[in-house]
Design a protein around this nucleic acid. Structure first.
Length: 853
RNA sequence: GCCGAUGUGGCGAAAUGGCAGACGCAACGGACUUAAAAUCCGUUGGGCUUAACCGCCCGUGCCGGUUCGAGUCCGGCCAUCGGCACCA
């Protein structure tokens, strides 16, 4: 009963062609040096962000980007490129581990099942991946090299002279451990009690874990860190030469958060009885050193190391109490802007170096220990936070910058540039000059210097989880040392109980035998974060089976080479990775590049973010709203080709857009019309070649639309404007529908154009037409401009910018002829009436506009 | 608060500064059919006018500007979405 009649037999032909492609290894990409590899062809590396294989399977958002890359991959192959188009699995991760905790089932089993499901779904959509290059980040053959790369990072340092990562052997200092790019530090980390692990800053949203939404608290712990901050400037500068959306570049720039300013020393007021020498000072970082005359108090972060020593006895109790309160706050509470400023005077003073005034030192939690020097000069006149603080505690507010068009009093609270006032050394100077002069003044006296600070922090790289890469590190006498390369991969121990210990000690600590490395050495028990595997997977795809290297030199320089700074030619994925994966991967890439392992300084040349697909109700798809679409359900009814084409026809790739089952049906109708253009159903209900198909010369009009379609589809694929490419193909099909004679040559051309979008139906019809060879080995058609020009063209006649008529004129009509025709036109004359013609604008081949008044 | 993106028919959308709404959905009418589905053909931004044809006016979030001409460029608002958020 629910056996719906198929508009064309996609249910038969789609699996047929998928089997043929598998069998013939149609989409297998050859590496340089392999048999049949053609070095004359240019390369094209088109990559998807590989998925985490969740238990829920694919949703319609995944195949949106995947279809876009697949169309590009098939198009590039037809254009004579060697195309690398791979797929794999980012399979370490929390959900599998959470499931293991609940059920006791090993995450590897869950992962294997989920991958099988994902793969079956992707294959059913007919993507042209080279499945022989499939990789899985949880495979020991893969994470062996993730661990190996970690060791490269561990054994490197950032040389500030060359501004590059170099092997530790070039380091001349006394303490190599202090400069390693991977180091251990006791840091205040984001500890999530619920998940039993620490998280990176990037994984904490509004004081809650990105995964699960559990509260996150600050807690000092001994952790592995990666020195990404050393690369801050290179990560910024590298963006300039990438073809990425400007918005994403901006997100990364803001995340890195480079600020140029000054570091200034405020000498402490000595109190010999407490042993504080007068030569000591507190350093602050500021970007507005021109406002230093307005600095009439100083604020330290509550955790600032000097607080204990500087607090006077009578303030000790109050300070201790305040610090206790602050420590108890979650990040969410602490950053809640709505709340009032708090703080405590610690009893000590510093001297403002420009006017020798004695100013009080406070602690307040609006100053962060992790940024700048953990201390700020309070300038209530021109910083709204300082102003709020000063008002709360009745401190003086002095204007020192006069904003344009304002009185000094009105200028209070303004952060903009202006002219310095109440500032003897720089009075009357505009802000940029004032900054320069005061900085020079401070520098001469040795109490200030130019400084650059970043919001970016070093990357917290260890996790207290089971389902991740173990660190190839052992501890001996309280010191860490690297495993040798031959000990890789280091596999995690077998465990029955994957639960977090709750103490912050990783689950691996439960495996007593595994931990014990030798008489006096034990293994590191932390694991790497999920990002590790995705930091370099695009490299492994170039050479996935290599046993001896993370990627062979020749495949790497071929697929990741080229003219551009970035290796991957096109990378499509979700915007949610704008600052996480995309920054981490660039960082690893630069380290490996510096160490001489890679050809190009950037991983991804062109990046495109696909927009989110909403439910039919215009809400985000979620179980909660019951509006989730399963791709396989759609394919069951309409077929994979219709599914692919609809995903592209919905609208611009980068735009957010709602799903519409009716829309799928419309696209499905289009494909059915393509089918019936060439096939008819006989008495027995079987499909056979249409008798209208003939080896006939296309008419002039047919040539025109064919070449217009070649042109439009070609240009639109290059510009990733797939929706309008499909529109043009619809126009083509409409033009050829219901004809007595359908020229086969035009159909063959059309099928090649359609192939990247709807590979199954186009392959089948290509074969049905008894065309030579397979459609996948054809050459992309070229359009001939001469078919597009017409003898006569439409000219728009306007009066004062309003359309009054349209006339046909010969293509070669001169401007004078156009103007004459316009003046003679009756509708134009009516519109002009008794007005005088002031001017006539003639745009050749387009329009005539008569200006009359 | 700061930064960014987006605002066009009933809906998804299209339009190198030059005919706004291509293409598709939905809706309506017709053909085919005993009938329905499917398919094919046609109409479809709003308004005024007309018996009808014809004709006219308005219209791309709002206000202004540049231009012979603005959905498109510039300035100022408003709304929605996204990111960052005490970063000194």
């Amino acid at each position: 009963m629910n056996e719906r009649r198929k508009p064309y037999p996609f249910d038969r032909l789609e699996p047929k062609w998928q089997a043929i492609w598998d069998e013939a290894r149609t989409f297998h990409a050859l590496n340089p040096g392999e048999k049949d590899f053609d070095p004359a062809k240019p390369k094209f590396y088109v990559l998807d962000m590989f998925p985490y294989p969740s238990g829920a399977g694919l949703h319609v958002g995944h195949p949106e980007g995947y279809t876009a890359t697949d169309i590009t991959a098939r198009y590039k192959r037809l254009n004579g490129f060697n195309v690398l188009h791979p797929m794999g699995w980012d399979a370490f991760g929390l959900p599998a581990e959470q499931y293991a905790i609940k059920t006791g089932q090993h995450p590897a089993i869950t992962t294997r099942e989920n991958i099988a499901k994902f793969k079956a779904q992707l294959k059913r959509i007919g993507f042209s991946y080279d499945w022989e290059r499939e990789i899985n980040t949880t495979d020991p053959g893969y994470y062996k090299w993730t661990q190996w790369i970690f060791l490269q990072i561990y054994n490197s340092w950032f040389n500030p002279e060359t501004k590059k990562a170099e092997p530790l052997s070039t380091y001349r200092g006394g303490d190599p451990d202090s400069v390693r790019l991977a180091y251990v530090a006791e840091v205040a980390v984001n500890w999530c009690p619920e998940l039993g692990t620490v998280l990176a800053n990037e994984e904490v949203i509004d004081g809650k874990s990105e995964v699960g939404g559990f509260p996150v608290v600050r807690r000092p712990m001994r952790q592995w860190m990666l020195r990404i901050t050393a690369f801050a400037d290179r990560l910024l500068d590298g963006l300039d030469n990438l073809d990425w959306p400007e918005g994403i570049k901006l997100l990364q720039r803001n995340w890195i958060g480079r600020s140029e300013g000054a570091e200034i020393e405020f000498p402490l007021v000595g109190t010999p009885q407490r042993g504080v020498p007068t030569s000591e000072s507190i350093r602050v970082f500021t970007t507005r050193h021109d406002t230093i005359y307005g600095a009439n108090y100083m604020v330290l972060a509550p955790e600032h190391p000097l607080v204990d020593r500087l607090t006077t006895d009578d303030q000790k109790a109050a300070v201790a109490k305040y610090r206790e309160q602050v420590a108890a706050k979650s990040d969410l509470e602490r950053t809640d802007l709505a709340k009032e400023k708090t703080g405590v005077f610690i009893g000590a003073y510093v001297i403002n170096p420009v006017n020798q005034e004695k100013i009080p030192i406070w602690i307040a939690d609006y100053v962060l220990v992790g940024y700048g020097t953990g201390a700020v000069m309070g300038v209530p006149g021109h910083d709204d936070r300082d102003l709020e603080f000063a008002r709360k505690f009745n401190l003086t507010v002095l204007p020192v910058v006069q904003a344009p068009g304002k009185t000094p009093e009105e200028s209070i609270g303004f952060l903009e540039d202006g002219v310095s006032i109440n500032s003897p050394i720089i009075d009357g100077l505009p802000t940029p000059d004032a900054k320069k002069k005061i900085l020079a003044w401070l520098q001469e006296r040795g109490v200030g210097r130019p400084d650059v600070r970043y919001k970016l922090r070093d990357w917290l790289f260890s996790r207290q989880r089971y389902w991740g890469e173990p660190f190839p590190i052992v501890w001996r006498d309280g010191k860490h040392e690297a495993l040798s390369e031959k000990d890789l991969p280091l596999e995690p121990p077998a465990l029955d109980d994957f639960k977090p210990t709750g103490t912050g000690e990783p689950p691996l600590a439960k495996a007593k035998d595994w931990i014990r490395y030798s008489e006096n050495a034990t293994r590191e028990t932390n694991t790497m974060p999920q990002w590790a595997g995705s930091c370099w997977y695009y490299l492994r795809f170039c050479d996935p089976q290599n046993q001896d290297r993370f990627v062979g030199e020749e495949p790497e320089s071929y697929w990741m080479g080229g003219e551009q700074p970035g290796g991957v030619d096109l990378y499509i994925g979700g915007v949610e990775h704008a600052v996480l994966h995309l920054l981490y991967a660039r960082f690893w890439h630069k380290v490996l590049f510096d160490l001489g392992h890679l050809s190009k300084p950037e991983p991804f040349q062109r990046l495109v973010n696909q927009g989110m697909i909403l439910g039919e109700d215009n809400r985000k798809m979620s179980k909660r709203w019951g509006n989730v679409i399963d791709p396989l359900d759609v394919i069951e009814i309409y077929g994979a080709d219709a599914f692919r084409c609809y995903e592209m026809f919905m609208g611009p790739l980068e735009q957010m857009k709602p799903w519409s089952m009716k829309g799928v049906e419309g696209v499905s109708r289009f494909l059915a019309r393509v089918w019936r253009l060439m096939m008819t159903e006989n008495q027995a209900g079987e499909w056979e070649l249409s008798t209208a198909l003939q080896e006939a010369e296309p008419t002039k009009a047919q040539q025109k639309i064919t070449h217009a379609t070649i042109k439009k589809v070609t240009e639109d694929i290059e510009g990733l404007a797939f929706n309008t490419a499909i529109s043009q193909m619809m126009i083509f099909v409409n033009a050829f529908t219901n004809l007595e004679v359908v020229p086969v040559s035009a159909m063959r051309t059309f099928l090649v154009l359609l192939n990247p979008f709807a590979p199954h139906i186009s392959s089948e019809l290509w074969q049905q037409l008894k065309s030579p060879g397979d459609i996948t080995s054809q050459t992309w058609p070229r359009y001939d401009e001469s078919f597009l020009v017409e003898d006569e063209i439409d000219i728009v006649l306007q009066v004062n910018g309003k359309v009054r008529d349209r006339v046909k004129v010969p293509l070669d009509a001169t401007n004078e002829q156009l103007e004459t025709a316009a003046r003679a036109n009756e509708k134009v004359r009516n519109a002009v009436g008794s007005q005088t013609i002031r001017k006539v604008v003639v745009v050749p081949k387009k329009l005539v506009n008569i200006v009359a008044a």
